[in-house]
Design a protein around this nucleic acid. Sequence first.
RNA 1: GGUGGGUUACUCAAGUGGCCAACGAGGGCGGAUUGUAAAUCCGCUGACUACGUCUUCGAAGGUUCGAAUCCUUCACCCACCA
Length: 404
Amino acid sequence: MSIETKIQEALAEINRGSAEIIDDKAIEKLVRDFYENGNNYFVKAGFDPTAPDLHLGHTVLLQKLATFQKYGGIVQFLVGDFTATIGDPTGKSATRKVLTREEIEQNISSYTTQAFKILDKSKTEVVYNNDWLGKLSASDMINLTSFLTVARMLERDDFSKRFKANIPISTSEFTYPLLQGYDSVYLKSDIEIGGTDQKFNLLMGRTLQKSYGVGKQQAVLMMPILEGLDGVNKMSKSLNNYIGVTDAPNDMFGKILSISDELMWRYYELLSDKSLESIKGLKDGVADKSLHPKKIKDMLAMEIVDRFHGNGKGGEARDEFAKIFAQKKIPTDLDEYQLEYNMGIIDALVYCKLVPTNSQARRDIKAGAVKIDQEKVTDEKMRLSRGEFVLQKGKKNFVKIIVK
RNA sequence: GGUGGGUUACUCAAGUGGCCAACGAGGGCGGAUUGUAAAUCCGCUGACUACGUCUUCGAAGGUUCGAAUCCUUCACCCACCA
């Protein structure tokens, strides 16, 4: 294969799934330089160490970084610890808790362990922006702010919308894009990638690199925001519509299967390793009814479970799933709880964490959602007899109880 | 700093002295149906020692037999003016 073909292939892979690329010529140049002269380049991406758990939304970005690593990119895995220690003032989350140094350390280590399931560790530099931002003096800060006008700041969609809608904008929020841009100055990044919602901040890196005379301006690649399980909001932990990379295989499988058919294609595009052509083939198959959508969703779920839990785990999860839902059997691995003989059913439900409160337990019993060994419980005053049972709430929640 | 408006449950949003644990919508949970999809239909959605009791309507006091509703102070937010 000629170098030219390789370069074109690399560029196609880099481009895949991206929402927008600014200065694709620059990217081409970097990749070309890698293939022709073996020179590497820096790809920066920022991560917020406040939430220690990665979900699939984060992996969209990580996968893109991994792609760059294949084609000569050295990843600058930027940990935004400076921001985390002073707290993010964004709009309504103004009271967000400020993390201690230890908490941040802990989050970061759990974060990077997860990230290295996707990233090549040997081509990744983990950097902390507190190392340089923490040293900026007041005059450095003022110098930094002098490069941008308020009018420019208000160009940011988020800001202008809030400004028009009379939603408060704290002055300190203006400094965030500046600091993020300054990171690119300090790191001399060649490319920065982020979500589309980050566009303004990503571009700030270009602007400031020019202002500070870095000698280059980073290219910017934006990935679309992955929708969560509801298909509407972005995937996030706080909305509880996420699939965590550490979710158990069965949970992961189940969650993916519960997404809508429409969203499934989105996930294929952004998360699957399948080529674009084969995805198109699947789509056509569903359109002409030669393929059942459920089947396609199974495949996606298996692929993702395999990625995070190891080959073969996806298939196991599928079989387990079929057992539970198609054949209405009980799952194999259940949490076990030891209970006292004669305990009331309501207490048992709360104790096993199937419901948060007694009131909720009563409601669920009334609604016919509670079952013991597949047998519907109708009397909320019922007491447990001795033995081993499977206690169930709704379709998805099972525990094993051992009554002594 | 001045003037005016606002703060109700997960969110939006009714309620201006008793009929208020608080209308409605969204969300969530559960049931039927299904492919744990979509769509549709139905029920539930403060807590508890549960035909009763307790705690909620920004916070603290007060008036009243009785307050989310009236009064006082405080906090926060918004608009206009400076």
